[in-house]
Design a protein around this nucleic acid. Structure first.
Lengths: 185, 185
DNA sequence: CTGTTACCATACGGTAGCGTATGGTCTTTA
DNA sequence: TAAAGACCATACGCTACCGTATGGTAACAG
């Protein structure tokens, strides 16, 4: 082969491509040789940047965990200030940008321990965020804790159910359910 | 090898074992040769009962769909009569018998179309069941539809989140959230 | 008792992916 | 400009699994 050497790769490039493949084909599709083909190189490159496949998967997990924690929380906090506005924004965000990647990672986590741990950490941070918002809105701490769980699990469930319904209506219903939660503490 | 011929297998035996493996190791672990080892036979047996691996997977999916549709609905309907009692029973059921198998199938469905279709059918039947119960409880049809979605997605979400909390408290919270949803008006 | 059918073992060829070894080519540093 | 290091190609052996081909053994029919 003619070594053109137009572009060199970094470990981050591999991780990003792995995240893409994970998002739309699942963890079983993120394998080093197919990934190499997608990147236009051979696995000789891969094994220079990573010790083995597991190391790539750990890197993927780390990347997702950081993004998943701060991206959504930061996005919400930047978008508005009032607690109830933030909850509405959060709900919209789940449906819009509402995560084939999240879904793939969660599917992965169902039978991989390290993935499960990462998901657990993300869940607990996001849950705490929702709970704090409900408290700030005026719910008592015990009530906020319960309602936050209801709301959070529901948003997760939305990503995993296949209830056929126009996206427009799904968001609308979710928002009205949110109002219900906010009204009747 | 000495052919003792102590026991012969049927297609159903293969499917049941596949369901077990699916439940605790995921769909990627249900493969014909490992399965044969678990059953104490060779794949010569498998390919007599099935054309290929995909046929087994379809059989697994069919088995799950039937069980998942009627088992939970029937169990609830047999346990009690009043709509709100049935909803409480349903909630308890999700946490008790609350499905590593369901979880595995849903994970599988995230990147397999036929599995996704099966999950969609099950979801729509279960959702209709919850919605009917909420209507029977006295909620108006539009309200019942929305709350049913909130409740159903939340129960699904409970299976997919890893929020560390004692099982006892999880059920308790879920039941109190249910009471909240049952509130009329 | 003989043939047919149901069920299974064994052996084979084939593919896909893992990880290693080795050497080549660029880039950077001295 | 020569040496060192960064990055990649190629080739290799290995394992796990798929699906097929073929023949053997049990049970049952006639």
């Amino acid at each position: 082969m003619v070594p053109l050497m137009t572009e060199r790769l970094s470990a981050a490039t591999w991780t990003e491509m792995a995240l893409r493949v994970l998002a739309d084909r699942g963890i079983e599709a993120v394998r080093v040789e197919p990934l190499a083909r997608l990147l236009g190189v051979t696995k000789g490159s891969f094994y220079w940047h990573f010790a083995d496949r597991r190391e790539l998967l750990d890197s993927v997990l780390l990347g997702w965990e950081q993004a998943a924690t701060f991206d959504v929380i930061d996005a919400v906090e930047l978008a508005c200030d009032e607690p109830d506005d933030r909850l509405r924004e959060l709900t919209r965000l789940v449906f819009r940008h509402g995560g084939p990647l999240d879904r793939a990672v969660r599917a992965w986590a169902s039978h991989d321990e390290s993935a499960a741990n990462a998901v657990a950490r993300v869940d607990s941070r996001r849950y705490a965020f929702v709970r704090a918002l409900l408290e700030a809105h005026g719910l008592t701490p015990p009530t906020a804790a319960m309602r936050a769980r209801l709301l959070y699990t529901s948003l997760i469930g939305e990503q995993h159910t296949s209830l056929k319904l126009a996206r427009k209506h799904r968001v609308e219903w979710a928002l009205r359910n949110l109002e219900f939660l906010l009204d009747r503490g």
